[in-house]
Amino acid sequence: MATLLVHIALLAYAGAAVIFLVWLARPRDRLPSWGRALLAAGLLAHLASFGVALAQVGGSPSAAGLARAGFGSLAWRGGQLFSLLAAATVAGYLALDLRYRLPVAGAFVAPLTVAVMVPAHIVQSGARAINPGLAHSAALAAHVVAAALGTAALALAFGLALVYLAGERQLKAKQPGRLFARLPSLELVDRVGWRLVVWGFIGLSVAIGTGSLVSREATGAVFIFAPKEGFAVLAWGLLATLVQARLVAGWRGRRVALLVVAGFVLLAGSYVALLASAPSGAASERKNALTQGALRKGLPFRERALFPSALRRTPRAA
């Protein structure tokens, strides 16, 4: 049922993407309304799919519950993670559009959502087994939610930054193109983009903070020097600089848009690193089985939490 709902959502998103792209080529007043309606319908189906999956695991808001809701198993699949990000981005766009009427951002969000959702539901990427010790970790649940919301806000800010750069380029070159009439004012794009950057920065800060708690629970180390964490911290550093420059020196416009693009690219690098580090599905299943064996043997909590060491102490479990 949950899978069917996600497929319905994907179809609605695809329909909205087509409508928004047609609108870019042939402006008709009604098209953005239809695009919005389809995005909203898709989002409802998408959220319903999460609800159905959550109900199947008893509605627990724990990390395990979240994993089952978004991903259908205790394994985090990279593609499934993007499903959660896509839903957050669409929800964010619809909220923005309700307030500011930004159909041109819809022409960016809808195709991006489809591009993110297709691998999420057609290509079954490698799975990363959740450390059973973290299944009930509040820090992990907070980490996932903050990362999803922060990334969604920054994805929208990234889209608006591209819109800003396109509009600014046409104005500076004094050659308004075909899309110019449909672009919102630079001032609006800059203002909304800035608010999204602030929310994205807050989300990313919480995600990094809770991520270090998760890391400590799992490995004992507060910070791991791995590509995923490295990219995230670099993105955070860039955004922190941006926020400071805006507040102190009043930076805005093109230079802010360029920094937002760079920050989002760094953040995307973090997700690419996450996907690249995910073990194959078979390996993950094996790890899960080993972990379950360790738990059945009644190892102490600390050793259960420290997943790798638990494995080392159970020579031929399961």
């Binding site: 672009l183 004012s185 630079l186 001032e187 609006l188």
Partner: peptide, 9 residues
């Protein structure tokens, strides 16, 4: 029109 495109309202 152009001024509105830059400054909005």
């Amino acid at each position: 029109d152009l001024i509105r495109k830059v400054l909005g309202d």
